[in-house]
Amino acid sequence: MEDDFKHLVRISRKDVDGNKKIEQALTEIKGVGLSLSRSICLTLGLNTEEKIGYTSEEEILKIEELLENPQKFDIPSWMLNRRNDYTTGDDLHLIESDLDMTLRDDLNRMKKTRSYKGRRHEVGLPVRGQRTKSTFRHSSTVGVSRSRR
């Protein structure tokens, strides 16, 4: 069984450390969090305590297939990271470079339409209503200087 161990496992265009447990190793893939990783293990019947280096090629192919289309395996739609997509209106789950590209496209669309969030992103200010009086100061420090006696 020791000769079946793989130190690097390639899952969905990402090299994953084979010494980690399956549940933790899947979280190395961008777009897969701990809750989705746990649901993948439960859905496919994988042992979460086993190291991912010992998994067979068939199990890895099942994991990749589930990451491609999680709705087919009855993963609930609230676990997906792109519900009600802007262009298609479908519920999607994106990983790795696809996730980066769509986030960049979303930001560019907001900037192009000159929405509030887009303008805040352009200037580099907080987008979600945080206060700016005391935080988000990037240039010179503004404050009270103590006089020395």
Score class of each variant (00 low, 15 high):
Glu2Asp: 11
Asp3Trp: 03
Lys6Ser: 07
His7Asp: 12
Leu8Ser: 07
Leu8Lys: 03
Arg10Pro: 00
Ile11Tyr: 02
Ser12Glu: 00
Asp17Val: 13
Asp17Trp: 06
Asp17Tyr: 01
Gly18Lys: 00
Asn19Ser: 14
Ile22Thr: 03
Glu23Lys: 14
Glu23Cys: 10
Ala25Asp: 00
Leu26Trp: 01
Thr27Phe: 03
Thr27Trp: 02
Ile29Asp: 03
Lys30Asp: 03
Val32Asn: 01
Val32Ile: 07
Gly33Met: 11
Leu34Phe: 09
Ser35Leu: 10
Ser35Gly: 07
Leu36Cys: 02
Arg38Met: 05
Ser39Asp: 13
Ile40Asp: 02
Cys41Gln: 03
Leu42Gly: 12
Leu42Tyr: 08
Thr43His: 12
Thr43Arg: 09
Gly45Asp: 13
Leu46Lys: 05
Thr48His: 05
Thr48Val: 11
Ile52His: 04
Glu58Phe: 09
Leu61Ala: 15
Lys62Thr: 06
Ile63Asn: 00
Ile63Glu: 06
Glu64Lys: 09
Leu66Met: 15
Leu66Thr: 08
Asn69Phe: 05
Pro70Asn: 00
Phe73Ile: 11
Asp74Glu: 07
Asp74Trp: 09
Ile75Val: 05
Ile75Asn: 00
Pro76Cys: 05
Met79Thr: 02
Leu80Val: 11
Asn84Pro: 12
Tyr86Arg: 15
Thr87Val: 15
Thr88Ala: 08
Gly89Phe: 13
Asp90Pro: 11
Asp91Asn: 14
Leu94Ser: 01
Ile95His: 00
Ser97Val: 00
Ser97Met: 06
Ser97Trp: 07
Asp100Thr: 11
Thr102Leu: 04
Asp105Ala: 04
Asp105Leu: 06
Leu107Ala: 11
Asn108Tyr: 08
Met110Gln: 01
Lys111Glu: 00
Lys112Phe: 14
Lys112Cys: 12
Lys112Glu: 13
Arg114Asn: 14
Ser115Val: 12
Tyr116Asn: 09
Tyr116Met: 04
Tyr116Phe: 07
Arg119His: 08
Glu122Phe: 08
Gly124Phe: 08
Val127Ala: 08
Gln130Phe: 06
Thr132Ser: 02
Lys133Ile: 06
Thr135Gln: 06
Arg137Ala: 00
Ser139Ile: 06
Ser140Asp: 07
Val142Ile: 14
Ser145Gly: 13
Ser147Pro: 04
Arg149Gln: 04
